[in-house]
Simulated scan of single mutants.
Amino acid sequence: MPELLSVEGLRAGYADAVVLNDVSLSLGQGETLALLGRNGTGKTTLIDTLVGVTTRYKGSIRLSSQPLEHCAPHVRARAGIGWVPQERNIFKSLTVHENLTAVARPGAWTASKVYEMFPRLSERKENMGSQLSGGEQQMLAIGRALVLNPKLLLLDEPTEGLAPILVEEVLKGVERVARDEGLSVIIVEQHPHLILTISQRAVVLERGAVVHQGAAGELQRDNALLNRLLGVCS
């Protein structure tokens, strides 16, 4: 499988606060990676560093062999990084359809294709962003990242605060994106059982460093390791 993302020796944080220490990982084209760890271990900081909104002290980030570590966030977006932050950051004063079409770039993903994946959004396409439920806002945030037609989709806690039925709907959409569309995805999640089943690989962070990486299925089946790394038994 061709390598899409390569991160080597990454050290980063916010201003003078170093959060990530010597983080290295890679991701193949079409792979989904579960990025796991307890609270405060650096998962969101790693996502933010890939996007370009932290202070990078050393290390390299390459997407399709293109160096990105010195690039501004908008350049990284043009290079193919799509980002759905925890805050979702949809345009609440615009309609669902305006949210999708205002930022769209040419490519396979269009507003119509997003509506096909998330029928709830099609039913609410004329609703303002502020009128959507939390789950609908999350679907819209994912859709808005997709219509940028990225190579890599970064999802930071996509199921946080959602009702179980909406969690299932969101994760089915993410699984389709990777399985059927060949998009690479990194998902940050507090609950490993939700995403290990739809991921090929898993990385666990502890105190800003990688303490485990390997096949997601193997980690899911190893209850003792899950408990030791994450304090859970799945």
Results as ranks from 00 to 15, higher is better:
M1K: 12
M1E: 15
S6H: 12
V7T: 11
G9I: 08
L10T: 02
L10P: 02
L10W: 06
R11T: 14
A12C: 04
Y14G: 00
Y14Q: 03
V19E: 04
V19W: 08
V19K: 10
L20K: 01
L20Y: 00
L25Q: 06
L25P: 00
S26M: 04
L27K: 03
L27G: 07
G28M: 05
G28T: 00
Q29D: 04
G30C: 09
G30R: 01
G30P: 12
E31F: 04
E31S: 01
E31P: 06
R38F: 02
N39Q: 02
N39I: 11
N39R: 00
N39D: 01
N39L: 02
T41D: 11
G42I: 11
K43V: 04
K43Q: 05
T44W: 10
L50V: 07
T54Q: 12
R56G: 10
R56Y: 02
Y57W: 15
G59P: 09
G59D: 02
I61L: 09
Q66R: 15
Q66F: 04
Q66M: 15
E69K: 01
H70E: 14
A72Q: 12
A72L: 14
R76S: 12
A77H: 05
A77W: 03
R78H: 07
G80Q: 13
I81A: 01
G82I: 14
N89Q: 15
K92H: 07
T95N: 02
V96Y: 04
V96L: 10
E98I: 01
E98W: 05
N99G: 00
V103Q: 04
A104Q: 11
A104C: 10
R105V: 10
R105N: 04
P106W: 06
G107P: 09
A108R: 15
T110L: 09
E116A: 14
F118A: 00
F118D: 09
F118I: 05
P119L: 05
R120L: 13
R120E: 14
L121C: 09
E123V: 03
E123S: 12
R124Y: 02
R124P: 09
M128E: 00
G129Q: 04
E136A: 10
Q138P: 06
M139K: 03
L140K: 03
I142F: 05
G143H: 01
G143W: 02
A145F: 02
L146G: 04
P150C: 03
P150T: 05
L153P: 03
E157C: 09
E157Q: 05
P158H: 08
P158W: 09
T159H: 08
E160H: 01
L166M: 13
E168G: 07
V177T: 13
V177Y: 10
D180K: 13
S184C: 03
I186T: 09
I186V: 14
I187G: 06
I187P: 01
V188G: 03
P192F: 06
P192G: 11
I195C: 04
I195H: 03
L196P: 11
S199C: 15
S199R: 07
S199M: 06
S199P: 10
Q200T: 05
A202H: 04
L205H: 07
E206S: 09
A209C: 02
A209D: 00
V210L: 14
V211W: 02
G217D: 12
G217I: 07
E218H: 11
L219A: 02
L219R: 07
Q220W: 09
D222T: 10
A224F: 13
L229T: 00
L229W: 08
L230M: 08
V232Q: 00
C233H: 14
